[in-house]
Computed example of a mutant assay.
Amino acid sequence: MNVALWIVAGLLAAVALFGGATKVLVPRAKLAEAPGGQWTASAGDGFVKTLGGLEMLAAVGLILPAVVGVAPFMVPVTAVCWVLLMVGAMVAHGRRGEAKFVALNLVYLALAVFIAVGRFGAW
């Protein structure tokens, strides 16, 4: 089970890092043209950049505490925060009628639940 948790945490961290870096580094106008990024057209630059920064912190929080053995309880806490983020993403995409992105966010949410439950010691 531990290996599966590490693999899922690594995959989810990669998703968070890529998504966060994109939001931080790519101009909002260009993000708004990309599939799934249309929501950024009606969001402020600060909001999009802050969200990107939080996603990059989530990438760190899913891996680093367990790797260095300092505050490893932060891994499941970060996973729970990711669940909340994905609920918000699902609402945002759902309001725009973007069902495929709602489904993708649901997959990310399920992976985060797996990490949270597994690292909180329920398995």
Rank of each mutant, 00 (worst) to 15 (best):
F18H: 12
F18Q: 09
G19V: 06
G19E: 08
T22C: 02
T22I: 01
K23A: 12
V24T: 10
A29Q: 13
K30M: 11
L31G: 10
A32W: 03
E33N: 09
A34W: 15
P35L: 14
T40W: 06
A43I: 04
A43R: 11
G44R: 10
G46T: 13
G46H: 12
F47T: 14
F47S: 13
K49M: 09
T50R: 14
L54Q: 01
A58Q: 03
V60Q: 03
V60R: 01
G61H: 05
G61M: 02
G61W: 00
L62R: 02
I63V: 14
P65F: 03
P65A: 10
V67Q: 00
V67K: 07
A71R: 06
A71T: 00
A71D: 01
P72S: 08
P72Y: 09
F73G: 00
M74H: 02
P76Q: 03
V77Y: 01
V77I: 15
V77L: 14
T78C: 06
A79E: 07
V80C: 07
V83Y: 02
V87F: 08
V87L: 14
G88H: 03
A89I: 02
A89C: 04
M90S: 05
A92I: 09
A92N: 13
A92Y: 05
H93W: 10
H93R: 07
G94Q: 13
R95D: 08
